[in-house]
């Protein structure tokens, strides 16, 4: 396993900061643009990256991320092509943790997925439609490749399930800000600090809140409840989606400026 999550979170802790982690879909709107977008996120202060590989039937995603996946697929994005983008990003940024968010059918296609992801510099893989009950072979393949398997803590998890997830998830713990699918239209609910305490006591790696995080106050509320960071997906992707007009060069400049401002604003909320 890489030590990137551990180093990043302990470094932030020393500074008294939380992590801000933006999510974007690889290959959206196109391969070259995708690489430039990720660079912008890193340069603007993202502490780690969460990246999607587009899938035709993303049942855990709301309309913004679905549409993003469709755009990427329409432009010919493949899992291998997406990982090749990350290999380039890794070349430029050797220390930033990079996590993948994927669906099971992309992973089981071959034995090659986890090793290829590892070789591309990926630190963790979260498979959205693989719950702990079905996780054993996926965890094994991730570990064999030196990748951290990440699991989601849903709001309806029992204490027993919280402890199970705490033991299974590596790198970080993905704590759902609310029920439902991804999307910024429905805001996160402040996590119960009792649940976060239970996870931490059970030895869970750093806790990051996702789903419904679109504004700095969501980041602050998550950290206040005891989380170590926050992920913002749909709000980030919505900025990409807003700049897809004809004049691509101009639009890319505007998109990157807006993404930079968004990341800086969200990141500032992680500071005391």
């Amino acid at each position: 396993m890489s030590q990137r999550y551990e180093k990043t979170f302990s470094g932030l802790k020393k500074k008294g900061e939380g992590a801000f982690i933006p999510f974007v879909m690889l290959g959206d709107p196109g391969m070259e643009e995708s690489e430039a977008i990720i660079e912008t996120l890193v340069e603007s202060g993202a502490d780690a990256l969460e990246l999607g590989i587009p899938f035709s039937d993303p049942v855990a995603d709301g309309p913004v991320i679905q549409t993003s996946a469709n755009r990427a697929l329409a432009r010919g994005a493949t899992p291998e092509g997406c990982l090749d983008i990350l290999a380039k990003v890794r070349g430029k940024y050797p220390d930033i943790p990079m996590g993948l968010l994927v669906y099971a059918n992309l992973v089981i296609g071959g034995e090659r997925f986890y090793p290829y992801a590892a070789a591309s510099g990926v630190d963790s893989v979260l498979v959205a439609d693989v719950p702990t009950l079905m996780a054993a072979p996926f965890v094994q393949r991730a570990r064999d490749a030196g990748i951290d398997p990440v699991f989601i803590v849903p709001p309806n998890a029992s204490d027993e399930k919280l402890r199970e997830i705490a033991a299974l998830t590596k790198g970080y713990t993905y704590f759902l800000g609310r029920a439902g699918v991804t999307g910024a239209d429905l805001e996160m609910k402040v996590p119960l600090s009792s649940k976060i305490t239970l996870l931490k006591d059970a030895g869970a790696p750093p806790i990051v809140v996702g789903f419904g995080i679109s504004r700095p106050e969501h980041v602050r509320a998550s950290l206040k409840a005891g989380a170590d960071g926050a992920i913002s997906g749909s709000a980030t992707v919505a900025i990409v989606a807003a700049h897809l007009k004809d004049n691509r060069k101009m639009e890319m400049i505007k998109m990157r400026a807006e993404l930079a401002a968004f990341v800086k604003n969200m990141k500032s909320a992680t500071r005391p």
Binding site: V59, A60, A104, A128, D129, V130, P131, T132, L133, M134, A136, F151, I152, V153, P154, P155, N156, A157, S158, K161, I165, L176, A179
Partner: peptide
């Protein structure tokens, strides 16, 4: 090997987001 309920031979299972499992 661990769970036999919900499978037909190797087919089937419960491949859904964690939130739907309960």
């Amino acid at each position: 090997q661990g769970i036999t309920r919900g499978f037909f031979g190797g087919f089937g299972g419960m491949f859904v987001p964690e939130i739907l499992v309960p």
